[in-house]
Write a protein that binds this DNA or RNA. Structure first.
Length: 686
DNA sequence: GAAGGAGATATT
DNA sequence: AATATCTCCTTC
């Protein structure tokens, strides 16, 4: 429609004009908007090398139609505005502390700010940004940057969707149109005249974005995916921060956590938790040091020997020779609790005990694992020099143990220490044995020191991790539900967490409802947004026109008349969308969002199913929990959480205990199927 | 060359 | 604040 419009390169570096991918030498980058352009396809390439170095693209430079001048004209209006703006942009460019991405963001911000903004609007903008930051982005983690308006880099306030399926703020869009641009700023597809003169707000998006912005950050769920994503931006190896480098000191930063288990995951780390290798953490696997061991989730704390939470349980321990009372017999060992040492000041290596250990903190966590019969992962470090079972180098995963008993005794140094009897109970043989089978239940060793023991605790209930002839060592009840709802750094892990979570579930489901096709009423598949801002499944919309042709041939008395365009009204209004229907483009951003939402909901349903099982377990235990009040203050009852399952768990209540114990692992598979079916019910539009 | 001081780091 | 570490650096 327009003569020789200059086109830049797209995100993949392909020139939108000639469709070739020019080499770096053949492209020029605009100094203002940092967009690459194919030099050969420019209608007016720079004449000299000097000009090329300081080149501005056609979108940014031409005084008559350039964005900058328009902004200057429509903005402050004063003569110096343009110069000011350019000076500001140069300043951003020159700022070496900014990343390229940050520079681009600031440039965009400046451009949109320059365009005649009233006072107070900036503040509003900041608020909005804030909300984007800890609201939408964190809440759902779904309305991420790819959904932002490409002009202002924010979630669209009044979103409009082009027929080519791209979303922008109305204001930004209109500003763009005001510059005489009648093509999509993202893909350069032409924008129909009707939309130019009267852009429509996509109200489905409005509601969705508003909802996302108004909810507070929610703890995600404990799904593996979540924990994985949290670590994506870390390097693969442990690293040294700039700060540490400066002082020439330690390399104590952990690299990525590769496994997708929550930090308080009990038991083996299975293949399903290991997206990287898909094999899980195997017995005998070893790592260079505690940092690397941490990355594979076998034992997370990089200093402490016990991983656990008082009142909840301990997930893993490390044997590294820190306590001289330890006694290692391979298949069983006596472990000493932590504490009792004065490490104040800089006495990090102080091995001298100066006070009694108590069953608190980590020691209490171990005691909980003892009472419940939880599986505890054990790693041995080369630093354990007195044990024949310790590895020569590095840190090795030796499998699952159970704590059969714990007590206190007076240790070698004369102060009381907490003691734990660990007995191996893994389906895989230990790294030091030539036996090809895993452990079988074995009689407890005779412990001489038990005679002088105090505060002895033995397990009274059925262990959560136990042996049966058919399956070996398995969970006899659902593993404790992860309390690590948020990623590291979370401090708000309490009862209110559950409320917010409940809300978030609803929000996600409501969000999905917002994305209903206006024809089939189900969540859209391949969503189309018409220029009149109505949303449909691609299939629904295309199917609703019997006559697939766009032009009607007319004849009159043997004479061919001018062909007549067939009017195709939008199913939701009277607008003729026949032009749009010729080449309807799926709103990919919207589709991605919908898919993410569905994925989240599916995971949450799975989660809810598990929680329902948790509750059932709790009910069973209610009788004997009375005597235990340990950690009551900080432990929020799992039973409350279970209500999240919106009735999903109901059915499970009819399942007998015995069956449930045996088929626990297959149960989750069934849940997956159930969840998938539910989801299909919502989303299948075909 | 070994031992230990000191600073960094992550989790409770 | 504590912790069953890691590293670089200094001291013996």
């Amino acid at each position: 429609m327009s003569p020789a419009v200059d086109l830049p390169c797209d995100g993949d570096g392909v020139c939108m004009a000639c469709k070739n991918k020019p080499s770096e030498l053949e492209t020029m980058t605009c100094r203002t908007c940092a967009t690459p352009w194919h030099v050969e396809c420019l209608s007016r390439p720079p004449e000299t090398l000097a000009l090329a170095a300081d080149w501005q693209c056609p979108d940014c430079c031409l005084p008559a139609e350039g964005a900058l001048s328009d902004i200057a004209a429509s903005g402050a209006g004063s003569g110096g505005a343009l110069e000011d703006l350019i000076a500001s942009i140069r300043a951003i460019e020159a700022d070496e502390s900014l990343t390229e991405q940050e520079k681009a963001r600031r440039r965009q911000e400046l451009m949109s700010r320059g365009a005649g903004k009233e006072k107070g609007q900036e503040e509003e903008e900041e608020d909005r940004e804030k909300q984007n930051g800890d609201g939408a982005n964190d809440v759902l983690g779904l309305l991420d940057e790819k959904f932002n308006c490409s002009f202002c880099m924010q979630l669209p306030e009044r979103p409009v969707t082009t027929p080519c399926g791209h979303n922008f703020c109305l204001k930004c869009f209109q500003k763009w149109l005001g510059q005489g641009k009648h093509t999509c700023a993202k893909c350069r597809a032409p924008i129909p005249p009707k939309m130019v003169s009267q852009p429509r707000i996509n109200s489905a998006l409005v509601v969705a974005i508003r909802m996302a912005k108004t909810v507070k950050p929610v703890p995600g769920n404990k799904t593996t995916v979540y924990h994985y994503i949290c670590n994506e931006n870390r390097p693969e190896k442990a690293f040294t921060t700039e700060r540490a480098k400066k002082s020439g000191k330690a390399n104590a930063c952990s690299g990525q956590i590769f496994v997708t288990v929550p930090p308080d995951h009990f038991g083996p780390i299975l293949a399903e938790h290991d997206p990287k290798r898909n094999k899980g953490v195997l017995v005998g696997e070893s790592w260079e040091d505690r940092m690397e061991c941490r990355q594979w989730g076998a034992h997370l704390p990089h200093v402490a020997g016990i991983a656990g939470q008082s009142g909840y349980g301990a997930q893993s321990v490390a044997l590294s020779g820190g306590y001289e009372d330890d006694e290692d017999h391979g298949e069983w060992f006596l472990y000493t609790g932590s504490g009792g040492r004065d490490l104040s000041g800089n006495k990090r290596t102080n091995k001298d005990q100066s006070f009694d250990q108590k069953f608190d903190k980590m020691n209490e966590a171990l005691r909980v694992s003892c009472r419940k019969g939880y599986p505890v992962r054990v790693v041995r470090s080369h630093k354990e020099k007195r044990s024949a079972y310790a590895p020569e180098t590095g840190v090795r995963y030796d499998g699952i143990y159970r704590i059969e008993k714990c007590w206190r005794k007076v240790g070698i140094q004369g102060f009381k220490v907490c003691r734990y009897l660990f007995v191996r109970c893994d389906n895989e043989p230990a790294p030091w044995t030539s036996d090809e089978n895993g452990d079988r239940p074995r009689p407890l060793p005779e412990i001489k020191e038990l005679k002088r023991a105090t505060d002895t605790t033995e397990r009274k209930e059925r262990p959560a991790w136990d042996y049966n002839e058919k399956d070996g060592w398995v969970w006899t009840k659902p593993p404790p539900h992860s309390r690590k709802i948020l990623a590291s750094g979370d401090v708000e892990e309490n009862k209110s967490g559950r409320k917010r979570r409940l809300k978030s579930t609803n929000v996600r489901e409501r969000l999905l409802k917002e994305f209903k096709c206006e024809i089939c009423g189900k969540v859209m598949t391949f969503p189309l947004t018409t220029p009149c801002a109505h949303n449909f499944c691609k299939k629904c919309l295309l199917d609703s026109y019997d006559d697939q042709s766009f032009i009607r041939e007319r004849t009159s008395g043997g004479r061919t008349l001018r062909a007549q365009k067939i009017v195709k009204k939008c199913p939701s209004c009277t607008t003729d969308i026949s032009d749009f229907l010729q080449n309807p483009q799926v709103n990919r951003e919207l589709m991605d969002l919908i898919e993410s939402l569905q994925q989240k909901i599916r995971e949450e349903n799975l989660d809810a199913d598990e929680e329902a099982s948790d509750e059932r377990e709790n009910n069973d235990e209610k009788v004997d929990t009375k005597e235990k009040n340990d950690g009551a203050g900080e432990e929020d009852s799992d039973g409350i959480d279970a209500e999240d399952g919106d009735g999903v768990g109901e059915k499970c209540h009819t399942v007998g205990r015995k069956e449930e114990a045996n088929c626990f692992s297959s149960e989750s598979g069934q849940n997956l199927q159930k969840a998938q079916k539910r989801l299909m019910g919502v989303s299948s539009a075909e």
